[in-house]
Design a protein around this nucleic acid. Sequence first.
RNA 1: GGACGGGUGGGUGAGUGGCUAAAACCAGCAGACUGUAAAUCUGCCGCUCCUUGCGGGCUACGGAGGUUCGAAUCCUCCCCCGUCCA
Length: 375
Amino acid sequence: MSFQFEVLKTDPSGARLGRLTTPHGVIETPAFLPVGTAGTVKGLSQQALEELGVQILLANTYHLYLRPGHELIREMGGLHRFMSWRGAILTDSGGFQVFSLADLRKVTDDGVVFRSHLDGSEHFLTPEKAVEVQMALGSDIMMVLDECIEYPAGHERAHAAAHRTLDWARRSREHYATHGDAGRQMLFGIVQGGTHADLRRENAEQLVELDFPGYAVGGLAVGEPHALTCEMAAEAAAQLPADRPRYLMGVGYPEDLADYVRLGMDMMDCVLPTRNARNGCLFTSQGRVHIKNAQYANDPRPVDEGCRCPVCRRYSRAYLRHLFLSNEILGAVLNTHHNLYFYLDIMRRIRESMIFGDLAGFSTELQARLETGPS
RNA sequence: GGACGGGUGGGUGAGUGGCUAAAACCAGCAGACUGUAAAUCUGCCGCUCCUUGCGGGCUACGGAGGUUCGAAUCCUCCCCCGUCCA
């Protein structure tokens, strides 16, 4: 058995401390997945990721299919070998691109026609094709193709997308059953339903009937209030089997991570730590630091005085500001390193607080300190 | 000494009578970023006043004067800079 998910402990809140075993190592959950869309976590080497303790990262089916091409990656021995990554990899299906490349695609019941953002060429992505590509990539966890919709979306539209996603999940499941290798790759289904509780519930229920080894909740954190995100995640989680991993896709702000864990989520991924780092926004225990701000010009202190990351141990705000304003590559590298450390450290502390049974306390503390984001 | 070309807001640099407090870019200041079309994007960026409004006043395109209802734009003189000729 190459895959195994164990829930070691369940918190009264519903939070789970767990362990997901994959052919590429063990993942301690709740886990945060750094985003490495194009087979790289922008700004960080694989060695740096290892040093940060990253156990699993996310890559993107659509992007890698376009460039360098999944067949090339297959030839090169799969994505792990191609990018020299020993840890686990989860590949997103391209479902998010249905949302983010809205101007460049057309969705039908059969699949999605994309016009490549690289060269304008047309590509038809079906649920079967998405599985096919991910099989070539050899990711540990594959995601079904889904239709991620915008917020706000009316009941009818959300229903249609959820229904279509469910149908695609069924097709993906079938294709995976006949062509895939369950010992080598898992396939996760995705719950959709917009911000409508009844749709979330119904969609999750029906998805569970398809018996996936793990489940994701998608289509959230696309502009709706945080409380609504939580409500929808909870609605879906209530329908999901306790013995399968749950993955909340695309979240979130650091101060919200513990909330999602308490809703019973085991995995999360987000571009915020990496993208914001490149845009000069650093996450700290005292809130956000816009490193380009004039007030840091001659500030000798580390970005986060309480942080033990290699960046905070060595460099001043003044220097990081200088690197950022000078558009020096090292600025992006160091900022990314710090932000990712910060996120991973929060997850580490969430897991620790679960062991000692004070997750609620940690969650409250986190919220109080980080209250600087948009509300 | 002569012939051309040129002097525009912190920088580069458009503009050759009104739509110009003056394009664009850079720099500067602030903000956004949630399964990455993102080292991206947005706003502000002469001074000042308030009833903060596609508001009022003042100052501004090398300097001084002039033409004109109106000038960064036209004319005169002067000062600088560049290239070439003697």
